[in-house]
Amino acid sequence: MSGGNSSGGAVLAQLMAQAAERGAELVTLRAIAEEAGELGATRALTRLGLADERAARDMAELRELLAAWRDAKRSAWKSVFGWLCALLLAVLAVKLGFAEFVK
């Protein structure tokens, strides 16, 4: 309903006064709840520094970075696992005497 922080507060105050005058009709209470939720969300985003035009782009970039980090981490673990398997096979080959068999 509202676009900004201060206008949201004014609209919310107006809706609350209207509810008090009219005996709090259901439609009015729903509008109050909607305005209160939007006002709270706007305040939270503002406190987090995510209320400007760049926020959506910044969040998209952060998601891309996080996805890249997860991919890199997954690849690193696969690499470590591969090297450990190769090392284990080499140790087994030496223990079982396959090194002499190859000579």
Results as ranks from 00 to 15, higher is better:
D58I: 11
D52G: 13
V80I: 15
R57D: 11
T46Y: 01
A41Q: 14
L48I: 07
A60I: 04
A56C: 06
L50G: 07
K73Q: 09
I32N: 03
W69E: 03
L92P: 01
L66K: 12
K78V: 02
A60H: 03
L89Q: 15
T46S: 09
A51Q: 10
A55T: 08
L88R: 08
R30Q: 13
A76H: 09
G82T: 15
G49S: 06
R43F: 04
L26S: 10
A76C: 07
W77P: 00
L39M: 04
A93V: 09
T46F: 02
A90P: 01
R74C: 01
R47H: 04
L50F: 11
R22Y: 01
V91D: 03
R22L: 06
R63C: 04
G82M: 09
L45N: 06
T46P: 00
F81P: 03
T46G: 05
K95A: 15
R43A: 05
R22A: 10
R57V: 04
D71A: 15
L89Y: 08
K78A: 12
F81Y: 07
A36I: 06
R70I: 05
L87G: 09
G23C: 02
A36K: 13
V94W: 05
R57H: 13
A51T: 10
R30W: 04
A55Q: 06
L87Y: 02
S75V: 08
A44K: 13
A24Q: 08
W83D: 14
L92D: 08
L48E: 14
A31G: 05
R74L: 04
C85V: 12
D71H: 00
E61V: 10
A67W: 00
D71P: 00
W83V: 12
G23K: 05
L65D: 12
R47S: 08
A36M: 09
I32E: 03
W83G: 01
G23I: 02
V91I: 13
E35S: 12
V91N: 03
R54P: 00
W83E: 08
M59L: 15
R47G: 14
V91Q: 02
R70V: 06
R57G: 09
R74I: 05
A33G: 04
R70M: 05
S79M: 10
A24H: 03
